[in-house]
Nucleic acid binder design. Sequence first.
DNA 1: GCCAACGTTGGC
DNA 2: GCCAACGTTGGC
Length: 137
Amino acid sequence: MAYWLFKSEPDAWSWDQQVAKGEEGEEWTGVRNYVARNNMRAMVLGDRGFFYHSNVGKEVVGIVEVCGLSAPDSTSEDPRWDCVTIRAVQPVKTPVTLEAVKADPRLADMVLVKNSRMSVQPVTETEWQIICEMAGL
DNA sequence: GCCAACGTTGGC
DNA sequence: GCCAACGTTGGC
C-alpha cells in the first residue's frame, strides 16, 4: 500500500465536507498539474492519504482512502485531466501543523516541506508513521 | 495582502 | 523546442 497527501483549502473543500460524503467519497477534482495528476494515476484502491488544510489551518486533519481509481475529471473539458475518488476514514486526534512538520528533522525531506505547491503528493511509509504518531493515532 | 516559487501557455 | 509572459498556489 502506498501513502499520499491531499491538499485542500478548507474554504473550497474542507475535511467536514469530505466526512459528510461518507463511504461514497468524493472525486478529487480540480488538479491541473501533471505531476499531481500522475500521482493520482499511480494510486490503487485502498491506498491511504492525509487530508491537509492549506492556507487556513495549514495542518493535517484526517485520514482518507482511495475508493475510486483515476478517471476523467468531470470539471474539465480537457481530457488530459483526471482524478481519483477518496473517502474519509478517520479524523486525527491532534492536528499536525506545518510548523510541527518543519520542526521535525526526520520530516525535512517531505514534499510538503520541499515543494509547498504540490497539491497531491507521495508520503513515505516512515513519514506516514511519524505523522500518525504526532496526530495521536 | 504580499510576494516568491513555480507550472503552464503561447509566440516565435 | 525555447523561453518570456502570465497565472496560481500557498506560506508568511
